[in-house]
Amino acid sequence: MTVILEARGLTRKFGGLTAVDNADITVDEHALHGLIGPNGAGKTTFVNMITGVDSIDGGTVTFEGKDVTGLRSFHMASLGMARSFQTSQLFEEESVLSNVMAGRHRHIDYGFPHTFFYTPKTSRVERANRERCMALLEQLNLADDAKRLVAELPYGRRRLVEMARAIASEPSLLVLDEPAAGLPGSDVEALGETLVSLSKNGYTVLIIEHNIGLLMSICDGLTVLSEGRVIADGVPSVVRADPQVIEAYIGRSDDA
């Protein structure tokens, strides 16, 4: 299997505090990979470093065989690493469709003349773009909301829009930061199904969760982070049995 993402020895310090300490992660192509850990384990910081949102104090990131350590987030995204955020980062005053169309930014290229003067070429490309996005919205069951403003959608659907926007960029790696956070149980199940179907359609997904249950059932691989360090890594069945994981995580699942 091809490795699509490999991070080695990633470290991030905030003042005297080491948020992430020498952490590794490997994600295989077409895998649904989970990154779990209790609250405050440094998951988001870890992923922020991988996706270029946060700066790196030590270690390397390799994406599709290229060294991308320290590249800025827009650069990472233009290479095909899309992500969603824990607290939703949507274009609130815009329609769902417009949010998703913005997601296809890196695939649209008609040069500045066609931007400044809306030419037939612009029109053609934009129409194709719109159609592809509508098709994606159909798939995600969002088509009926295409023209509504994001700001007025219910929470669960907003999270879905954010995912749709990331998927629209046809990423070779899709990073989702706690997509299930704040969703009621039935929605979490639906989300799980969506993730599995994405993976079946050839997407590679790295998903962050502190809720271990969801990931155990759907993931191909798991990395467990605790207090900034990786304490276990492997297939779910092995990770589940790891005594360190049980101690650091499952043992106090009550506060997770």
């Binding site: 827009f74 233009s78 609130e92 913005a102 930014h105």
Partner: peptide, 28 residues
């Protein structure tokens, strides 16, 4: 008017509404 309906217009909109999200979809 052209820019508003084009890729650049969406990029500007994204930059205005949420720079973090804009960068996450590859917008410089």
């Amino acid at each position: 008017m052209s820019v508003r309906r084009s890729k650049v217009g969406r990029a500007l909109m994204a930059t205005r509404e949420s720079p973090i999200a804009a960068r996450s979809i590859g917008i410089d």
